[in-house]
Design a protein around this nucleic acid. Structure first.
Lengths: 148, 148
DNA sequence: GTTAATAGTCAACCCGGTTGCCTATCTTGT
DNA sequence: ACAAGATAGGCAACCGGGTTGACTATTAAC
């Protein structure tokens, strides 16, 4: 039978760095979003964070956001619509170009960003507590070398 | 304006370990699947790997696969249907329980598993080449401490 | 001032997942 | 022995987050 291949596969995947890094990554991400949900931002989903990451302080067009996030204008348009409805961003038409929509951070969006900064700080502190300062520094160096 | 929050957010996310680990994880995963695609397994998708991971050498029921993979029976059923059609696994009804379907590795599935072992080995070797043996050992220790 | 490019959106679709519900089969308790 | 309940699987409807194609409105270029 083909069982041997399966056993080799299982052993290899236990020692596979990609696999292990993925598991850790998912756990860390889940922890961050748990923290944000506890702070009252359970309605912000992973895909929507890309909007905040792509947003300039002075506001940004939907097309530009889409290009920066690496998704289609239509997909970004939908994200912006949701975030606008929830009060995270505003969308106004550009006075200098009637075709364009300028997306800007709204009050709840600013609060979310600050909460995310706090949540990130806490998560990093927890990682450092688990690893100690030396290993945390090693981790940062390793991630840098791996192109993070 | 709310621009300050955005600037703090941007700075924090550049130093956020969760974010950085996620980026590295996605890059490593993409590299593995690129390798598998080069070997002729471009039709195997990430979600389908969960089936191989959950499969016992002597065959496993769909319900058991679903429970191990943490998805619904219906979702696992669909994955198995696709993999069966592509020749990776077989699905036969359990002679000792007519309700149950036993999924077993088929020839192409066994070949895929061996290819995945090779691809994993190559990927790990590449990581070790980038980091050197000392940092690679540090990485394994760090991942262990972070619950990987 | 016509033509071409750009910004945004609607519609239809895909993929991978969910829940609710259903049938077929097995197991249990009396 | 058999009714009642648990379990295995699959169908249908739906959701989220993405895609492509086709369209309108507006701006830019020659």
């Amino acid at each position: 039978m083909h069982g041997d291949a399966l056993r080799e596969f299982e052993v290899a995947s236990r020692h596979d760095l990609t696999h292990t890094v993925g598991a850790v990554s998912r756990a860390l991400t889940a922890a961050i979003f748990r923290r944000l949900a506890e702070r009252g931002y359970g309605d912000v989903h992973q895909s929507q964070v890309a909007v905040f990451s792509a947003l300039d302080p002075e506001g940004t067009r939907v097309s530009t956001l889409a290009a920066r996030a690496g998704i289609s204008r239509q997909a970004m348009s939908a994200l912006v619509r949701t975030l606008t409805a929830a009060g995270y961003v505003t969308a106004e038409s550009d006075p200098t170009d009637q075709r364009a929509t300028i997306v800007r951070l709204d009050r709840r969006g600013a609060e979310f960003c600050r909460a995310a900064v706090v949540a990130s700080g806490e998560a990093n502190a927890e990682i450092e507590r688990a690893l100690g300062p030396a290993r945390t520094a090693q981790l940062r160096e390793i991630l840098r070398l791996l192109g993070g």
